[in-house]
Design a protein around this nucleic acid. Structure first.
Length: 362
DNA sequence: AAATCTCTCAACCGCCGCTGT
DNA sequence: GACAGCGGCGGTTGAGAGATT
């Protein structure tokens, strides 16, 4: 087994650690220019350096090598990193092999300090490259719940780990949250319908692998506690509530001893107001929710089912299953100007009809 | 202006796989 | 096959710079 620098140090006192001095750099450069590299174990002694071989190799590979590229990563480089990471994962050296002049260490650092945060901000899990809020599961389970038939999976304990699961990636903690999440999503859709923007689809400038068919919804339009209910939305949510409740198992669930859900609204004399606990945030810390086409198609399917049963005038108009193309407003980020995921590049064409047709449910 | 916080990235650490003996 | 040496890899750390309060 190879010895680390520290263990070498134990066997060989006087080995220096920490930042390299210009003098040390010059010694290493001079030696390698004269003799080439390799034999890292013996190199430091021959070069007159009080460093371990490993330290010399890293210094050369990550900093002194003449073909090292310095400066910011270009947009193209960032694109390549993200796409390769989708396929390769944390294989930094393999990724580096595809980026001339960039080292694995540099790419690893850039990933951890920039790209990872950016993806998280977008609601994308940087490890799986998929949306962190798995609304697809939520919507499909709820769909089958609302339409109880023999061909649909029923809500049961097997789903709870994913639907109401434990930890930061869970969609909701209990059926109450599911209801309010659903209501919030409906409200996003309803309100964003007024925000259709006729902007060019800019998919060409971003990573198609990651972002094709994805859309952003503006969370600032979500319901806030004590905010008046607009468009008779309380009728919609009350209807969802009454449909969800019979589907909640009364026993053998990790959280429930009853099958009723709280009201999301209260009447204060002048109108319906959102309850304080009614609408937990759908957002992590990124001020936006990211959905794929499939997710939205599934939701729209469910929504159309709901609205067809209520025929409520409050039904969001873009819940109509025949809707075809919608642009929604993205949110502003604080990333720098070249940030491909920034606000002005987040307008994605969203075509719902394919998702619905492919669902086999229409 | 000073203190505190946050971010970046060079360097280190421990482990792994390959190769030679 | 067992062992040791070596290069390489990915995760982590911490000093210093910059930003914020």
């Amino acid at each position: 087994m190879a010895k680390s620098c520290s263990s070498e140090k134990n066997n060989n006192n006087g080995l220096k650690k920490g930042p390299w001095t210009p003098e040390e750099d010059q010694k290493l450069i001079d030696y390698i220019q004269k003799h080439g590299h390799g034999k890292w174990r013996t190199l430091p002694k021959n070069a007159g350096l009080k460093r371990c071989g490993k330290s010399c190799r890293l210094r050369w590979a990550n900093y002194l090598r003449p073909d090292i590229k310095r400066g910011r990563f270009s947009f193209e480089e960032e694109e390549i990193i993200i796409q390769l990471h989708t396929v390769l994962g944390n294989k930094w050296s393999t990724i580096a092999a595809n980026l001339p002049g960039r080292t694995d260490n540099e790419i690893k650092n850039y990933w951890n300090t920039h790209i990872k945060k950016k993806l998280l901000k977008m609601g994308i899990d940087p490890m799986t490259h998929t949306p962190r809020l798995d609304v697809f599961q939520l919507s499909s389970i709820l769909s089958s719940t609302l339409y109880n038939n023999n061909n649909s999976p029923q809500i049961n304990n097997n789903y709870y780990p994913t639907l109401f699961g434990i930890g930061s990636s869970s969609v909701a903690n209990n059926p109450s949250q599911v209801l309010s999440l659903l209501a919030s999503l409906l409200s996003y859709q309803s309100r964003n319908n007024d925000n259709i923007l006729n902007q060019q689809n800019q998919l060409g400038t971003i990573s198609p692998l990651l972002l094709q068919n994805q859309m952003h919804l503006n969370p600032s339009q979500a319901f806030q506690p004590n905010q008046p209910c607009a468009n008779n939305f309380h009728v919609e949510t009350q209807n969802m509530k009454s449909k969800l409740e019979p589907q909640i198992p009364s026993t053998s669930t990790p959280f429930s001893h009853q099958n009723t859900l709280p009201n999301l609204w209260h009447y204060n004399g002048g109108g319906y107001m959102a309850n304080q606990q009614g609408f937990p945030s759908l957002l992590e810390n990124n001020n936006q929710i990211l959905c794929s086409e499939g997710i939205m198609a599934n939701f729209n399917l469910m929504n159309s089912m709901l609205s067809s049963s209520t025929a409520s005038s409050s039904s969001p108009s873009n819940l109509n299953s025949s809707s075809s193309t919608t642009f929604v407003n993205g949110t502003t980020t604080t990333e720098d100007e070249r940030d491909s995921y920034g606000s002005n590049m987040l307008m994605y064409k969203y075509n719902i009809s394919n998702g619905l047709n492919n669902s086999g449910l229409l």
